[in-house]
């Protein structure tokens, strides 16, 4: 079986047990795991299956249905580009394309150094700031393609300093 550390197994079981009173807790368990581990790999799903009695096939089906869950770890910084309609009609596609181009990945993917993940989002409620980009929760308003390299450098630079 998997190389889950003992602590990791214990954590997963703890999360499962925390939702024991619920009638149908699977998605809540998976949300907590996604938040704690940053992803929900098959190994973790096996532990959830053993703990809850829900088959791995079903858990896997749920994990791959919802875009909130990921099978691979996300990067340190998650770049969420809004592709909601209000942003799209204001050239948001160009912005995300530029992020993808500069980082060499597709939406949903993570750079090899695990620094960045690009996610395409749907309306983050800042339509007035379209096109909007959020990075680790911080919202960048009216982003222009030209700003993209600078924004990336901002987060890369911080790494160099640290």
């Amino acid at each position: 079986m998997a190389k889950l550390s003992g602590a990791a197994v214990a954590k997963v079981e703890e999360i499962c047990d925390a939702h024991q009173g619920e009638k149908t807790p699977l998605i809540m368990i998976l949300s907590d795991i996604q938040r704690t581990f940053g992803y929900v790999p098959l190994e973790v799903q096996e532990v959830v299956s053993q703990r809850t009695g829900i088959s791995v096939a079903e858990i896997y089906g749920v994990v791959t249905f919802y875009s909130f869950f990921s099978l691979t770890p996300k990067g340190k910084h998650v770049i969420g580009c809004c592709l909601g309609t209000a942003c799209y009609v204001k050239d948001a596609q160009k912005v995300i394309d530029r992020f993808c181009e500069d980082l060499g990945i597709q939406p949903g993917e993570t750079t090899e150094d695990r620094m960045f993940t690009i996610d395409a989002l749907r309306c983050i409620g800042a339509c007035a700031a379209a096109p909007a980009v959020t990075i680790d929760g911080k919202v960048y308003a009216r982003v222009d393609v030209q700003q993209v390299p600078g924004i990336i450098a901002e987060y890369r630079g911080e790494e160099v300093v640290a």
Binding site: G84, T85, A86, C87, Y88, R122, C123, I124, G125, C127
Partner: peptide, 10 residues
């Protein structure tokens, strides 16, 4: 889910 709407959220 409508991509470009946030009234329910408000």
């Amino acid at each position: 889910g409508d991509p470009g709407a946030f009234m329910d959220r408000s």
